[in-house]
């Protein structure tokens, strides 16, 4: 029996999903082919055949900058990745978007318990402990610019599942409501894609919250 995440992926593919994040997924003759959604139809792409190649593809932007946040909308272009089966597809997607399929599997099983941002911040120790002092208005601004799907700094294609605090308030009113709705294609293309769910603020956001507090 297939592990749950593999089953989930096979179900999404069978349902006609067109991809995930910035990646187009097509299937032909049992082979899965991946490319950047902006590269569809190009015939001059560099062909790769190992799921591990996703590590290098996802590492740098087109400008050669390191990508610490894999769900930032800056995946580089120019590559074509062919994979022989769902297991290899899962492995590659776990390198492109680490942890996102696992979060989706838990969500689909109705067991995802997102952590409110305040709980994440208050849990910090050491140099990040101070981040908890960020006011609600600061969170509104920070999340509004940092997590924005498009034109953010750096921006992120995840769907935010976590609330600001125990009141279940949205962390930022500066983001469109779609940013909080799981099935929405965060690239703005309105296609049927596998959502990238964010169950808890990332360490990058915690570090930014610290910067906000320190600058005040």
């Amino acid at each position: 029996m297939r592990p749950p995440v593999e089953r989930l992926l096979a179900d999404w593919i069978a349902s006609g999903t067109r991809g995930i994040g910035q990646i187009r997924i097509t299937q032909s003759g049992g082979i899965f082919s991946l490319c950047h959604r902006e590269d569809e139809g190009r015939s001059d792409l560099a062909v790769h055949r190992s799921p591990n190649d996703a590590i290098e593809i996802a590492k740098y932007t087109d400008a050669g900058e390191y990508r610490p946040l894999k769900t930032a909308p800056n995946l580089r272009r120019g590559w074509w990745l062919e994979l022989p089966d769902v297991e290899a597809l899962q492995r590659a997607l776990d390198f492109f978007y680490p942890g996102r399929l696992a979060a989706l599997a838990v969500w689909e099983a109705n067991r995802l318990a997102p952590t409110p941002l305040r709980a994440t911040l208050e849990r910090q120790t050491g140099m990040y402990r101070v981040a908890a002092k960020i006011p609600d208005g600061g969170i509104d601004q920070l999340v509004g610019r940092f997590c924005r799907s498009q034109d953010g700094e750096p921006g992120c294609l995840r769907t935010i599942m976590w609330a600001r605090d125990g009141t279940k308030a949205r962390p930022s009113l500066r983001l469109p409501l779609d940013k909080y709705i799981a099935p929405v294609d965060q690239t703005g293309r309105g296609e049927n894609v596998i959502p990238l769910l964010c169950q808890e603020a990332c360490n990058l956001l915690v570090a930014e919250a610290r910067k906000v507090v320190k600058s005040e």
Partner: peptide
């Protein structure tokens, strides 16, 4: 980096 330590709580659903 990703997956984060927090993500790891979700990685072993098998």
């Amino acid at each position: 980096e990703e997956p984060s330590l927090r993500d790891a709580l979700l990685l072993f659903g098998d």
